[in-house]
């Protein structure tokens, strides 16, 4: 993607509270460039509750509503229906939530909103743990990863919850996975989500230097490696269409390279890495990527 194609307008103010190298901040900046000023953000408890700035300041140039942890999709349903009642059905009502607020505590409200075909866009920036409370495990934490509540690594009996397919099984208008490390893919998917009508869901992989134990300069590289090793697959499903993988590297790199960059995986032995690699291969085969 040519950076000159990126809109010159900024909806994320300077001086937000994201850590250096935080992909959650970067993702919001670019998402809003697509979504534009007819957008309202509904935000449950997460790192973003802090990134957005404290009263009386705000990091965003669009209306923002902070809401309790478990409630984003339900609040957004209320907001969207109210806009429709007011004769403003075109507003983008967007949930912006972490993986904890999406995979765990907020899941019921999301399922409800998706099943009701609420005309909202739900974005989950997935940094694979409860970062705001100090890096605790969520059901998005990958097997093997260190967190403060999985001090010896997230046990291999677990698998990261398959949010894409959970949402896809609700027959939404649009569901996709992407990451800002691939701006073409990211922009295209936000465009599609914006232009579709009904329940739309975007799952973003979102690196977090303190939580992933990486240097902030490696923040984007880590997300790129996640895609290039196949541990994170960028895909989408538009309405009734089949699931489509939107990016396939010429050759998948070994997941070891992705792990090597991150302190949260540094305790993994060869055997464990092989088990995880096997799982990745199995999934990639299932998706016809291997």
């Amino acid at each position: 993607m040519d950076f000159r194609e990126i809109a010159n307008v900024e909806y994320l103010n300077q001086g937000d509270f994201a850590c250096p190298g935080c992909a959650a901040g970067l993702s919001m900046r670019h998402a809003l460039k697509v979504l534009g000023d007819e957008t309202v953000i509904v935000m449950p408890a997460s790192c973003w509750s802090i990134i957005a700035g404290g009263l009386p300041t705000t990091a965003l140039q669009v209306p923002l509503m902070h809401v309790p942890f478990a409630t984003a999709a339900a609040v957004a349903s209320g907001v969207k229906n109210a806009f429709r009642e007011k004769g403003e059905p075109k507003k983008n009502v967007v949930c912006w939530a972490g993986d904890g607020g999406t995979f765990d505590i907020g899941l019921q409200a999301i399922s409800g909103a998706a099943e009701r075909r609420e005309d909202i866009i739900y974005v989950c920036y997935d940094n694979e743990a409860y970062m705001n409370t100090g890096i605790q495990r969520s059901s998005a934490t990958p097997p093997g990863a260190w967190t403060t509540t999985t001090p010896t690594g997230n046990p291999l009996i677990f698998e990261k919850k398959d949010m894409f397919n959970i949402i896809a099984s609700h027959n939404p208008a649009y569901v996709a996975t992407t990451t800002i490390a691939f701006p073409d893919d990211f922009y295209a998917k936000f465009e599609k989500a914006k232009n579709a009508k009904g329940f739309r869901f975007i799952h973003l992989l979102s690196s977090c230097p303190p939580g992933w134990r990486i240097d902030s300069k490696d923040s984007v590289s880590a997300m790129r490696l996640a895609v290039e090793t196949g541990i994170f697959v960028m895909m989408e499903k538009e309405g009734e269409q089949e699931i489509k993988v939107t990016y396939k590297p010429e050759k998948f790199k070994p997941v070891r390279e992705y792990f090597k960059l991150q302190g949260r995986y540094k305790h993994l032995d060869e055997e464990t890495i092989n088990v995880i690699q096997e799982r990745i291969n199995k999934r990639l085969k299932k998706l016809n990527l291997l």
Partner: peptide
């Protein structure tokens, strides 16, 4: 709005009211 729980009923009410 036929929400899926009372938590969501209150939450949707909050959203609607905040929308004015």
């Amino acid at each position: 709005i036929r929400v899926e729980s009372e938590l969501s009923a209150a939450a949707a009410a909050m959203g609607a009211s905040q929308a004015g």
